[in-house]
Design a protein around this nucleic acid. Structure first.
Lengths: 121, 121
DNA sequence: GTATATGCAAACCCTTTGCACATCT
DNA sequence: AGATGTGCAAAGGGTTTGCATATAC
């Protein structure tokens, strides 16, 4: 895989981000840095980065992909008011015991829903 | 809310279903019963049914909404090979303790990923 | 009769694909 | 030079919207 300015810019966006970010938002931010950058490139780059294990794709809202830098195992909270996505440290134990026989568990997602601290006030 | 043949047919589809079903699949099955039934009607009806608390919307794959009859609290397993969605009884305890201060927890989803019993063979 | 649901067509939005051109090594 | 990435335009797929017509009550 080659080093290109586009890929560099997309990776830069992830640096310093605390929360997951949606693909359309990455497109927007990347185009602020390189105006002629095409969204196709962003989507392809995100795919590649995910394949390399550098970022992770997640499913927190319909129709919109979210990504974050791959870090330690953790989960997410989605605020139903502002629709923000927040990382939640830790992991509930006891998930594997739920599994029916014959099923092979490879991963799990936990998504919490409610109001974030700002929207709760 | 009125009783219409369309709404009746859509509800019928849910009866006797063990697993969640995708919106496009509901459209297809509903049109087998009422050929001229429009997918718009299906989407609108699903929205209404969800609003009434009769069915539940869930997010298990990008771009495709899934629904199921609202029943007891449970979670789901998504097979990465056949993409089937399976209901999993039970619930891992200890989720609430993960919550940061100020956040209000209203619901949670757990999605397990891996291979279902058939695909695991 | 009146409010509500439906059907149709078109629009929307995010994402993906095909292909020619450009860029990295 | 040759492999790989990019930009552009168009298509794709699921979902939503506007509006006239039909239906339930």
């Amino acid at each position: 895989m080659r080093n290109t300015k586009q890929r560099e810019v997309i990776l830069e966006i992830f640096q310093g981000l605390k929360e997951p970010i949606s693909a359309p938002e990455i497109v927007e931010r990347a185009q602020q840095k390189i105006p002629q950058l095409n969204k196709t490139t962003v989507y392809r780059t995100l795919d590649r980065l995910e394949g390399e294990g550098i970022i992770e794709k997640m499913l927190v809202s319909p129709n919109i992909l979210h990504y974050e830098l791959k870090t330690e195992h953790h989960h997410h909270f989605v605020c139903k008011k502002c629709e923000g996505v927040f990382c939640i440290d830790g992991c509930a134990a006891g998930i594997a015991k739920l599994l029916p026989k014959g099923f092979i568990l490879e991963a799990h997602d936990i998504t919490l829903h409610g109001l974030c601290d700002k929207c709760a006030r």
